[in-house]
Design a protein around this nucleic acid. Structure first.
Lengths: 186, 186
DNA sequence: GTCTATTGTGAATGAGTATTCACAATGTAG
DNA sequence: CTACATTGTGAATACTCATTCACAATAGAC
């Protein structure tokens, strides 16, 4: 029998493993049985620590949400120039999704794949809040004269997110030649 | 009993309806039973015209592929300036996905949701070929001096696709205030 | 060391859905 | 009008998975 672990520990292990699977195979291939296997349990064991599969996903989403907010906070502290903040945020975001490809996969899956309620509202909240914060950075930058005032903040945010998402998607497609870092400067 | 129709006709009706469902509800909610219902058949009826559900999806993907290629061809014929071509292509693309939201939903689903073989390779081919063609437009524009030569074509293509995909995604999220057309100019 | 709560197990259960198949209706060629 | 191929039907069938549950092992409190 697998060693017994406190439920907080197991939860964490399970969530981490779920994120890995999401990164490698996507939400469509996330099975409770696989997950259990990877953490050394039988399927029913998962249910000692999570009420349902959706709950596992929820925890992963929370992790993603926190990571994004952490990044935003970080660029506010470490940079005072808006353009610098955006650059830095892009860099942090890229690092985050490169290290955890499961995050964008999960987020996009929830948005695009399925219309059912489930975690979708949660995901939309996450994106919306992130979007608003980017918008905010741009506004501040304009007020302080670091960004051209004739750019609509929303448009800027759209483009910024666009650059991010397309990079992420291209990475997904595993166009191996593609190195996002090359493109940041331009 | 529902009127009997030649299989080519029925196939087309089924594929069209599948595209509609994909647009409204996403790949995760595409059921053979629903599909049958919408075209006025019972589930087993679908199998008179398609070998499997994946085959239905394949036909929809073919439709998407053709549409994209048609757009590219069109901008080559109607515009000689590269920047104009890109603008026009963006416009056509936007129109296409607005009229057929099922196309981007399906494409993204296949790429992001699932790692299984299935149509994925087909989707990757589609995106890759589209990407290459955008790259091509930029190259030609540089050769003829309509686009700054210091931009890497690949980078340009990334940004262009990025703008497109982020627009599409934002539309998905149904941020109602969002009107992509506002942002094209900027 | 014993007792009890917690965690792990293995075998069902059950829901959701694609797919198959024998049969029925219908269109069409002759 | 008849026969045959094509298309539609309804009832199985089969599969994949999440989830449940009674039971077993283990850890920690006393």
């Amino acid at each position: 029998m697998t060693k017994k672990l406190k439920t907080e520990i197991r939860q964490e292990l399970i969530a981490k493993e779920a994120l890995k699977i999401l990164g490698r195979q996507g939400l469509g291939d996330l099975r409770i049985a696989d997950l259990a296997d990877k953490v050394g349990l039988v399927p029913s064991g998962i249910y000692r620590h999570f009420k349902s599969k959706d709950d596992v996903i929820d925890v992963v989403l929370d992790f993603a949400h926190n990571s994004l907010l952490t990044n935003v906070r970080s660029v506010y502290q470490e940079n005072s120039d808006a353009v610098e903040r955006l650059k830095k945020l892009f860099e942090l975001h890229l690092r985050l999704v490169l290290e955890n490809p499961g995050i964008p996969r999960l987020v996009f899956s929830e948005v695009i794949f399925d219309d059912k309620a489930r975690g979708k509202s949660k995901v939309i909240e996450i994106i919306h809040s992130y979007f608003t914060k980017i918008d905010e950075i741009i506004r501040v930058g304009q007020k302080e004269g670091q960004i051209r005032p004739d750019i609509e903040p929303r448009t800027g945010a759209v483009m910024f997110l666009g650059l991010i998402t397309s990079s992420v998607i291209l990475i997904q497609i595993k166009d191996r030649e593609f190195d996002p870092n090359n493109h940041i400067q331009q």
